[in-house]
Amino acid sequence: MDSSGEAPRPDESHMVIADVTVPAHAFELGRVFENVPNARVELERIVPIDGGRMPLIWVSNEERAEARASLEASSATSSVIERTDDGDRTLFEVRWTEDPDGLVSILEETNAKLLEGTGIGEGWDLRIQFDGRPALRAFRDKCTEADIRVLLRRIYNPHVPRNMSLISGEQREAIVLAFEHGYFEVPRRTSAMELGEMLGISDNAFSQRLRRGLSALVETTLLHQ
């Protein structure tokens, strides 16, 4: 407690991560997959390209054909490309013809980062990173104004070492991508070439980015404890 006898308030400017559930109709990708109710869809990330948004999404192979047909039939998509297949899932690259609406526009307005997303039928489970609790409250308020029902399942403050700035955003992206796709597993589930293709760079450029990122990660988390 402070001198006033009150417990100190948490630092509201600290980054927070929230796990939420939203209805599929809250954003275009969710509406597209309402037509494929049995498909399990995993949102890899949303990448800004040429002023638009290019989602990379995984779809279980059992529903691959039906999912692709639904994506191509949407007036909101300009192209749908199959990028890779890990045996159980297919990675699609999707480009939109329209500006983001609904949930995606609210994420942009609140400077939130969509870390993960999984959809089955009518609902989507999302993991979202916010700059602080005020940004999270702004997100919820805007969703309420837009009549988007948001179920907050979990919220937590991840611990980030102060000197993590030594790791660039591109290096962090390479490390996370390699981890998520089994590059560090034995045997490996993917290759540097495949990961490089996902980022639009060569396998050699990806390997260099990954090594530099891992070197910085060791320095910031293991050598200065």
Results as ranks from 00 to 15, higher is better:
Gly102Trp: 06
Ala216Glu: 10
Asp147Ile: 06
Asp11Ile: 05
Ile167Pro: 07
Leu71Val: 07
Asp203Tyr: 14
Ala26Glu: 11
Asp99Thr: 08
Gly30Asn: 08
Arg53Gly: 06
Leu126Ile: 10
Ser202Leu: 10
Asp147Met: 11
Thr110Glu: 03
Asn157Gln: 12
Ala216Lys: 13
Thr220Ile: 09
Arg68Phe: 01
Gly51Tyr: 00
Ser3Gly: 15
Gly196Ser: 08
Gln129Asp: 06
Glu63Met: 05
Gly123Val: 15
Leu223Trp: 01
Arg9Gln: 14
Gly5Glu: 07
Val160Gln: 06
Arg95Ile: 03
Leu43His: 06
Met193Thr: 15
Ala73Gly: 02
Pro161Ile: 07
Leu115Gln: 11
Arg153Thr: 04
Glu194Ser: 15
Leu210Asn: 07
Asp88Tyr: 11
Ala192Arg: 11
Pro187Leu: 10
Arg140Gly: 02
Val150Asp: 05
Leu166Gln: 12
Val20Leu: 11
Thr84Trp: 13
Arg45Val: 11
Leu166Thr: 07
Cys143Thr: 13
Ala76Lys: 00
Glu98Arg: 10
Gly30Gln: 08
Ile49Ala: 10
Glu62Cys: 01
Gly121Tyr: 02
Val218Lys: 03
Leu43Cys: 08
Arg53Ile: 12
Met164Gln: 02
Gln171Met: 11
Pro134Tyr: 01
Thr21Gly: 06
Val41Met: 08
Leu126Cys: 04
Gly200Met: 13
Leu223Phe: 06
Arg189Val: 09
Ser74Phe: 15
Arg53Asp: 13
Glu66Asn: 10
Val32Ser: 02
Gly51Asn: 13
Ser70Leu: 02
Gly117Met: 07
Trp124Cys: 04
Arg133Phe: 08
Met1Trp: 09
Glu72His: 03
Thr190Gly: 09
Leu71Phe: 07
Gly5Asp: 06
Phe184Arg: 02
Ala39Gln: 02
Ile46Phe: 00
Val20Ser: 04
Val32Trp: 04
Thr97Met: 10
Ile57Leu: 04
Arg212Glu: 10
Pro161Tyr: 04
Asp99Met: 13
Glu108Ser: 11
Arg154Lys: 14
Glu93Ile: 12
Met54Gly: 02
Asp125Leu: 14
Ile148Pro: 06
Ala138Val: 03
Ala7Trp: 14
Ile106Lys: 03
Thr144Met: 06
Arg162Cys: 05
Thr77Ala: 03
Glu6Val: 10
Glu197Ile: 09
Leu210Pro: 09
Asp141Leu: 03
Arg137Phe: 15
Arg154Ala: 07
Ala178Trp: 00
Leu43Phe: 09
Arg127Ile: 03
Glu98Trp: 00
Asp125Phe: 09
Thr220Ala: 14
Arg140Met: 09
Leu199Ile: 12
Glu197Lys: 15
Ala7Gln: 12
Glu12Phe: 09
Gly51Gln: 10
Gly213Tyr: 08
Ser105Cys: 01
Phe27Met: 09
Gln171Ile: 00
Ala69Phe: 00
Tyr156Arg: 15
Ile106Ala: 00
Gly87Glu: 01
Arg127Asp: 04
Leu29Lys: 01
Asn61Met: 02
Pro8Tyr: 08
Arg53Trp: 02
Ala39Val: 04
Met193Arg: 14
Glu180His: 08
Gly87Pro: 01
Asp141Thr: 13
Arg172Gly: 07
Glu82Asn: 08
Gly200Val: 12
Asp203Ile: 06
Ile17Thr: 14
Ser165Ala: 10
Glu108Pro: 05
Leu56Ile: 05
Glu28Gly: 11
Ser75Trp: 15
Asn204Thr: 15
Arg172Ala: 13
Glu93Pro: 03
Met1Asn: 08
Ile17Asn: 10
Thr84Val: 09
Leu177Asp: 05
Tyr183Asn: 01
Glu219Asp: 07
Thr118Arg: 15
